[in-house]
Design a binder for these strands. Sequence first.
DNA 1: AATCGAATTATGTATAGACAAATAAACGAT
DNA 2: ATCGTTTATTTGTCTATACATAATTCGATT
Lengths: 242, 242
Amino acid sequence: MAESPALPRYLEIQRDLQEKIASGEWGPGSRVPAEHELQALYQCSRMTVNKAISALAGAGLITRRRRSGSFVASPKSHETILQIHDIQAEIAASGRPYRFEILARQSRKMTDEDAKRLGLARSGEILALVLVHFAANRPFVHEERLLNLAVVPDAATESFSAAPPGTWLLGRVPWTDAEHTISAEAADAAIAARLGIPAGAPCLVMERRTWQAGATITWARLTYPGATHSLTSRFSPGGAMT
Amino acid sequence: MAESPALPRYLEIQRDLQEKIASGEWGPGSRVPAEHELQALYQCSRMTVNKAISALAGAGLITRRRRSGSFVASPKSHETILQIHDIQAEIAASGRPYRFEILARQSRKMTDEDAKRLGLARSGEILALVLVHFAANRPFVHEERLLNLAVVPDAATESFSAAPPGTWLLGRVPWTDAEHTISAEAADAAIAARLGIPAGAPCLVMERRTWQAGATITWARLTYPGATHSLTSRFSPGGAMT
DNA sequence: AATCGAATTATGTATAGACAAATAAACGAT
DNA sequence: ATCGTTTATTTGTCTATACATAATTCGATT
């Protein structure tokens, strides 16, 4: 059996087209039949066809131009969606016990260095933290973090005893923009000692800046021992269409 | 004037809602007005409202449940779209002259190591390449690549004199699935020599496997000197809605 | 009180039709 | 032959309506 998928018409069409593109039957640059042709082919209304094609256009598989028609897009890059989970949740999900230690905490007026990291010109109060996250009592990642107290004043009096600042923020302040930078660096002596690795060992470093409506909320720098951590993502173009 | 934005109705609504979510006015879990309410509010048809909300639902900002209604989603992770450009295009875009050198090329029956890298169990013919890409005559990235000749037989006779294998593939074989792994590793002696960096220097390593309809097309391992290269991405949830 | 079932409600899908906007192609005049 | 104008085609948006589907609520029956 398995023959009445109860699959909506527009998804059926969408998958049909997608399959033709994925298989190479319609190579990059080929013309996709016009909406009225597909409408006749599939015996449905134009809106239904439109919904299918528009979805593929949104996913970047097809580009559309008025009067000219729709064409199979030629990929110019690999694109992947990187899911960066909350550290606490990530460790908990792996079944290992989680804890963290705050090594340093300081409220201060923004230094030039702080301002640069937050991407801000003018001054203000910030909260600076240094902490280490542990998975099964072994150091997992080293975190340096700056919080812009102008945007998150509550943080000044928060103890962060229940949840680390990253988790605390995530559930409290909605962000509208984030910038991630991933790089490889040699561990400096201080961080190496805290992570229990040799100085100079390669580390995966992730820097993140987060904004809400133009205002920088926070900056974080996460240093993972390179030997134990990597980022993996699997991706299919036009993925969200089950 | 400047008052006729010519912005379509559904985008206007979409941005309105998005703004309410981004600003925190509608916190995570809040109920979004039902379609018929928004329809009355914006004086438009339900389909128009539906298009706006559906787009936000697709972007993950809203979750919808029949009969219950629509609710602002609560983010559980940072998610970012990593654009990994074609190396040739990336260097060319930076204005520096590009060239590459093929250091090794071998057609062979798949070894166990090859099979593991490609994620395949059984055997077959592959093409193995080692190359270095240069930007402005300085080593930019070291590439090891395996091509599954069962899927891309043309590669066996291709000289790759015009374009490197990555670029060549991108314009030829459509891929349906890709897996990326990003890690930090110390450069081994051979790679360090080819990149002109000290052995043991931290490197950003990106491994990629690419499939077409279940069949592995290629495996690639790109090693970037950590001192000069990083991956950056800026992301706003619900981004693709200009 | 517990359970089953029906009415209600919000979303999901689909239709037919209409007009707008962009632009490639055909056409015409200089 | 070149330039500007008209025409035709294709996508973009919108409407009003209809029925399907899932799920909550509430009432009736046991």
